[in-house]
Design a protein around this nucleic acid. Structure first.
Length: 301
RNA sequence: GCGUCGGUGGUAGAGUGGUCAAUUACAAGAGACUGUAAAUCUCUCGCCUUCGGGCUACGAAGGUUCGAAUCCUUCCCGGCGCA
């Protein structure tokens, strides 16, 4: 019998975390985070990590595990998440995946198998200095086929493709492995106006909770400004503020827009998955409907 | 009041007689996604379109010219200087 897994996806500030706890309470579940930034230690306020209090006693996995100076990736994520699912399942509890990082979730639940080539820091550093078209030519020599479908303006992708091709001789086709999961996909997508409001409110709340001092502390503890930038969103803009490139007001204005753009990108990603059952919010009314959907799925076997 | 500089698409800001529906950036919208994914990348972006093109536009109104966002006149608005 397949392991049952409930998954809650949606854009940032849609109320996923609260819903996950609510469902976990009802179904004797534990939550596994699927968030590429909340996996890091000490990135708490800026990532909107759920607090101990908000967890209401529900165990949460894959939060605050990695040093924020280190680079984490999908492959590590799927390994950890698979282990967590097994662990939770073995204790006869319901794993609830909750998060907004589409790639991580799909890799885990759709079984995307990426080529097993470890990141090569030196090679990357060398390649990053080249232009996209130079990189494209390098890749073309190594793997004609991959060069044909790759986005030839996307340096990040090109670098990785070259990295793989150098190691394996070519870039293998992406494989999907059959997973042992029976997944119920639940999506939360508020209407645009509500989502915008939520984003704005949440940002204000984060400021009150001390987002700026969190940033200062991270910097003091040696997190480079370059790293701030690559972490994106709040940390990218916190970094610009700490560098004095932006005033506090400018930071907040730009950040709010940027978060909105991010939310749109998340929605674009999740829209592709036709298995997702969408709801507007996590209100009482929606929650009841969601429970109904879960019950039906749960009874099926 | 006189002088002077300026008024360009949602915003900032190029353009100073034809190659201009107008560089670029941002905002907005759509989308992509092979181990960085909160990252990275692409497309659209005056209106209409049978996708050939058509129409209306660079403060307003006139004028010069084969042709004006670009030159001239007047007016309106804003900055600065002098009164």
């Amino acid at each position: 019998m397949k392991q049952k897994v409930i998954t809650i996806v949606g854009p940032t500030a849609s109320g996923k975390s609260g819903l996950a706890v609510y469902i976990a309470k009802k179904y004797n579940g534990e939550v596994i985070s699927a968030d590429s930034r909340q996996i890091y230690k000490n990135l708490d306020i800026g990532t909107g990590k759920i607090t101990k209090k908000e967890m209401l006693g529900i165990p949460h996995h894959l939060l605050s595990l990695v040093d924020s100076k280190k680079q984490f990736n999908v492959s590590q994520y799927t390994r950890l998440a698979n282990t967590a699912i097994k662990d939770i399942g073995s204790r006869k509890k319901m794993p609830i995946i909750c998060g907004g990082t589409g790639l991580y979730i799909d890799a885990l639940l759709l079984g995307l198998q990426f080529p097993e080539v470890k990141p090569d820091k030196n090679l990357r550093a060398k390649l990053e200095k080249k232009t996209a078209s130079e990189l494209f030519l390098i890749l073309k020599k190594l793997d004609q086929r991959r060069a044909r479908d790759i986005d030839k303006n996307n340096k990040v992708r090109l670098v990785r493709a070259i990295e793989i091709a150098k190691s394996l001789g070519h870039v293998p086709n992406l494989k999907k492995k059959n997973t042992d999961f029976d997944v119920l996909w639940i999506g939360i997508r508020p209407d645009d106006e509500t989502l915008k409001k939520n984003i704005s409110k949440r940002l204000t709340a984060r400021m009150k909770r001390g987002m700026i001092s969190e940033g200062k502390k991270l910097k003091k503890n040696g997190l480079s400004l370059r790293r701030f930038d690559s972490l994106g969103l709040e940390y990218r803009y916190l970094g610009k503020f700490l560098k004095k490139e932006l005033t506090k007001k400018e930071m907040l204005e730009k950040l709010e827009k940027e978060i909105w753009q991010y939310a749109r990108r998340q929605i674009t990603w999740f829209k592709r998955n036709k298995d997702i059952v969408w709801f507007k919010d996590n209100s009482k009314y929606s929650s009841q409907k969601i429970i109904g959907v879960i019950n039906k799925w749960h009874l099926k076997g």
